[in-house]
Design a protein around this nucleic acid. Structure first.
Lengths: 199, 199, 199, 199
DNA sequence: AATGAATGAGGTTTCATTCAT
DNA sequence: GATGAATGAAACCTCATTCAT
């Protein structure tokens, strides 16, 4: 019973995520979400009081999925750099396993997305930022050295995102393997751009 | 005469940019844009055939402003690193001098913004990416060393953007001076995160 | 179920016919049609995608009503002249039983009505012209004698229409009974204006 | 001076007639009429206070043109039948010499045209109906024999109109010469459809 | 519980008309 | 006198939401 309700709720959210990701909030259509979910329009409203609530539930799922995914990285018994790699790979994997949610995440994380900013912001308060944690941890352990660890974490996040083609207007390194991307990024983080001349 | 028309056109675009940046395309209201521009609703339609056209004209202005701003950097007679600095400062300055346009730029540059993707994409084909050019130039001159110069340019861009508080859901280094941010970034680019332990 | 939908569709069309007949297409108002139908504005759009489509559906109904009405005349076992009479009476009767549809019919049949000419023309391709058929039949049987039977049919049609007061700017024979009108017309068709002098 | 003003007024009316005939009142556009007249939009309003007034002036011109055209027929020293012929030819000639005005005339004369019915009706009060006059005269002289001379005039009018292809949804006798049409009509008026069998 | 027919607020767009130049 | 830029009322249409079945 309860499971079935919960399952249907998830189905709706998944379809909604596809719509919201593809068309944005305003151009997404409750009717179409219902049809594509294989249920009646009125039924949507048994699960979500309003379109806005459905949107927020979808964004909550974004947060949950990301937290779920990054949950165990911090406790891995590996070097901070290894953790960074694992974390990057996790993010890259989202492109295949949950693109709509990835798009919604990025739209909020990096864009001044105007859809219910306050409410979404409140949800994202709970979003773990593993890159930040790793860098902070690394700094504590003496592995990394930066005056702004938290910010460094966000910078890494933004760089990884940059290399996810589906999220970019101009796709970058489309045909490069994830391993190479990770290597590229790690190298960059380790050595900067190697400005010998200035050193 | 003609100047006056062009001036009014610019006024409308500026107000529109504010609206689009704040509320997004769909929730922006031609009526309100007219009122805030101090002109009649119908007048908007003398300058722009449709709301969509106004939006695209606004996005074209975004491209123009950014190109205008970065035009002369590449030809400066300074080291690539200095150029990077100048370029970063330019970007930071947008926050004060043209925030709505900066927001619209970022919304397209980093978000999968679904509003007229194809048309906006076509406009952004003409957008210069000075960071990319500088890195490429630096690689040629031997100052920088990276297998993916273009991509490195975009990564720098995304990092600078990360440090512009107005563009971030969670503002970073809000009270840090631009000079320090530039220094932070340049240092990062030069030395990575100084992972001595791994070296 | 289905019947109820169909019934409501017919109701809308009837109200719409009244509006279109009275005010013309452009000055008819979906809102008002809705109100007069006792339903909401949006409901109209459940039955007809656009105002134009409602108009065309109304014109289709015109064709259907006229065809329905004239269906059985041709097969009557009476002389062509008798058929003409029956047919005239049918037309006269429309004034009382479906004036709006009669007006819309005449507006298209005799006026260069500019509302969606091509589309309406396509609909009227299916409109039976019983007067034409009767004259053709009569010519074949030797009852009538005219070089242009089809055209003669249309001429009769136009004459009958002329004697329907509701369709004329200057009402003719307003207080004359239909029987007398029919007699007048039949006499004219049989004998013309009896120009003895010229004979 | 005055002549020039009057001339320009006529030009506007002619262009307006074309627009009104082609698109109907509501879909005709003052701006377009101005442009096609080669004058400014505001200038139209120096000649006609409103669009409606321009329309009514155009319809007044219709009446004037028709009256002008039929003025001298009644006084011709020929038989009523000959007068009918001349009158028919006059009407046929309108198709080539003033089609827009002919269309506007027919739209009002035979259709329940809803554009300013009362006002247009008032104008048409002054419209001569030569066919009616001729028949009445013919009846007086004993040439014609009909209980409803006025109505017979209108019937003839409607028949002639039927044979003007530009006025009909389904053009009739498109490739038949006017002379033959006149002959056809005159014969019909004289002898009807020659129902020998019934005689 | 599930449905989808019905609703009407709200926003874009057109165009007759005005008026400052 | 002539102009056309500016205006805003009005109408079509969409779609989130409700509710009777």
């Amino acid at each position: 019973m309860k499971n079935e309700k919960e399952l249907r709720r998830q189905t709706i959210i998944e379809i909604a995520a596809r719509e919201f990701a593809e068309k944005g909030y305003d151009n997404s259509n409750i009717n179409e979400i219902a049809t594509m979910s294989g249920i009646g329009k009125g039924t949507i409203y048994l699960y979500f009081k309003t379109k806005k609530e459905l949107y927020l539930a979808t964004m909550q799922t974004v947060v949950d999925l990301f937290n779920e995914s990054s949950k165990n990285v911090l406790n891995l018994e590996v070097t901070p750099l290894e953790k960074l790699k694992v974390c990057m790979e996790l993010l890259f994997r989202f492109e295949e396993e949950g693109l709509p949610f990835l798009i919604l995440w990025s739209r909020y994380q990096f864009q001044n997305n105007p859809d219910f900013q306050d409410e979404v912001h409140a949800l994202f308060k709970d979003l773990e930022q593993p890159f930040c944690n790793i860098v902070k941890q690394g700094v504590k352990e003496g592995t990394f050295n930066t005056p702004y660890p938290e910010e460094a974490g966000y910078l890494i996040l933004s760089m990884v995102t940059m290399l996810i083609p589906s999220l970019q207007a101009k796709p970058l390194l489309e045909n490069v393997s994830k391993e190479e991307k990770v290597e590229f990024l790690v190298n960059l983080i380790q050595n900067g751009l190697s400005c010998k001349a200035i050193n």
